[in-house]
Each structure stands twice: as C-alpha cells, then as structure tokens.
C-alpha cells in the first residue's frame, strides 16, 4: 500500500499538500513540531494512491512517497 512520510522538521504547515491531495488523505497534525508548526500528516492513509501530488507542491521538500 502506498504511503507518504512527512518530515516534521522540514514541514512549515502551509498545507499546500493537504489541498493538492486528490484523495484527501492529508490533514493537520494535532502535535506541535520542534519548529513550532502543526505539520501536515496522514489522516486517511488507507486512501493514499501514491500519486505524488503532495510531494509535487511541497515547498519544503518535506515529503517522501513510498509505493
């Protein structure tokens, strides 16, 4: 099953990935990161199709896509 990893140390919570995900897999984390952001995280991992759209729009190169 495809999945993604968000590097919470790079994510700045712009949520462009949340917006870009066609399957609405991503959401905001409830935990604050070391940088002081609520990073993006998978909220519906079961829906991920590994399309890399989130990776594509991430300005902080914080996302790794694994398939």
């Amino acid at each position: 099953m495809p999945r993604i990893e968000v590097d919470a140390n790079r994510c700045k919570a712009c949520y462009l990935c949340v917006n870009a995900c066609p399957k609405k897999c991503l959401g905001k984390s409830k935990t604050i990161s070391k940088k002081g952001y609520f990073p993006a995280e998978m909220v519906h991992p079961e829906n991920c199709i590994g399309c890399t759209m989130c990776y594509m729009v991430c300005p902080d190169v914080a996302i790794t896509v694994i398939k």
Partner: peptide, 24 residues
C-alpha cells in the same frame, strides 16, 4: 521510494516562509 528530496539538494531545511514557491 518513488519521490523524495533529490540528491542535488542538501539536508539543510530551507528558511523560506510557509507556502513560498522558492522551495518547489
């Protein structure tokens, strides 16, 4: 892994503002 930070970038986290296009 089908998409990850390219080798030609370092591991240094970028300083740009959230949402800024520079990082892309």
């Amino acid at each position: 892994i089908i998409a990850q930070k390219p080798h030609s970038l370092t591991d240094v986290p970028m300083h740009y503002c959230p949402g800024c296009g520079h990082g892309i």
